[in-house]
Amino acid sequence: MSTGTDPLAPLAQLPGVPDAVAEVRKAVDRLYGHRVMRRRAAEVTSEAALRGARASAALAGADWPLEEVRRRSDFSADEESRTVGAALRIAAEAGQLLSVWRHSPLQVLARLHLLAVGDADPAAGRPRRAGEGVEDLFPLELKPVESVEVEAAPAGPAVEPPPAPGAEEVAARLDQLSRLLIARAEGQGVGTPALVVASVVHGELLALRPFGSYNGVIARAAQRIVLIAEGLDPKSICPAEVGFAELGTDTYRRALAGYLAGTPDGLAAWIGHCGRALRLGVRESTAVCEAMQRGMV
């Protein structure tokens, strides 16, 4: 099947998206070419997973310092602790689920939710049912880091996402998303850039909020898996979650509103936001590599 049949292909041609794709590719390639990656790639991967998990938990309402996350071993004491623990467990296993993702993305999403909530939760690993509630995506407001440029972010006031779709719509759209990803794994539509595919998966999961809890953490982990599966970040060393946290939740909300609107400008802004976050993740891991090279890690 030709790449022209890929429903995501038109998104790659939206204004600004080709530049975002090229900038991300250049940044990622530069990181993979760092001399530290030749000797200590596994350590960089582990550190990226830790930093990504910390940032994803912060976006979900548990903004802990990195060293606190590194030091702690008990993540069951309270809601913030459980959120950090959920993000860490998901980050630790996400990269191991690639083979399952290629033929059953929904099974992987179920596994990620089970990792987050634990098997004692009766709702673990299944999409929410009619009448069941769903947690807020952004329970904590994070301000942009001062050193991060956000002038290219979507303008306008921060907005809350609309109510989550009903269970029937969620099931239908998850099935559609799964079919698209499986088709890509089978070689259909492979011309669409990884950044575009990962952005759509991330945005769609935030839009659907398929589970009763931890949807943001799961959506960000799914983006990470797509970037691995699509070959852009095969060693999972580019923690985009760090970038989303550094850009702040207001910017995240505005960008997501663009995705939800479904307009060309809105979709382009969302993909651009995901690209900026990924480049900031590259910057984070580059700093880790530099510290390793100087013998500081």
Score class of each variant (00 low, 15 high):
120 A>T: 10
74 D>Q: 14
75 F>W: 15
94 A>D: 00
71 R>N: 08
100 V>H: 04
81 S>E: 15
99 S>E: 10
110 A>H: 11
123 A>K: 07
108 V>T: 04
59 L>Y: 03
72 R>S: 09
45 T>L: 07
108 V>P: 04
52 G>W: 12
48 A>D: 12
68 E>I: 02
98 L>Y: 03
45 T>K: 04
119 D>W: 03
40 R>M: 06
124 A>Y: 08
107 Q>F: 02
104 S>T: 04
99 S>Y: 03
84 V>Y: 02
77 A>D: 12
114 L>M: 02
120 A>I: 00
104 S>Y: 01
77 A>C: 01
66 L>M: 11
50 L>S: 10
93 E>C: 07
48 A>V: 06
96 Q>H: 05
67 E>P: 02
133 G>T: 06
128 R>T: 08
55 A>N: 08
106 L>G: 07
54 R>K: 15
98 L>I: 01
91 A>Y: 05
131 G>P: 04
89 R>D: 01
56 S>W: 01
58 A>V: 05
41 A>Y: 03
128 R>L: 08
87 A>Q: 03
85 G>M: 00
78 D>I: 02
91 A>S: 14
101 W>F: 15
111 R>Q: 13
58 A>R: 08
102 R>L: 15
50 L>W: 00
39 R>Y: 14
133 G>E: 15
130 A>F: 00
107 Q>R: 07
98 L>T: 09
113 H>Q: 07
41 A>G: 06
42 A>T: 13
39 R>C: 06
56 S>M: 11
79 E>S: 15
129 R>S: 15
48 A>C: 11
49 A>S: 09
89 R>Y: 00
90 I>N: 01
58 A>K: 06
77 A>Q: 14
93 E>T: 13
59 L>F: 09
76 S>K: 13
131 G>M: 14
101 W>L: 14
118 G>H: 14
113 H>P: 08
126 R>H: 09
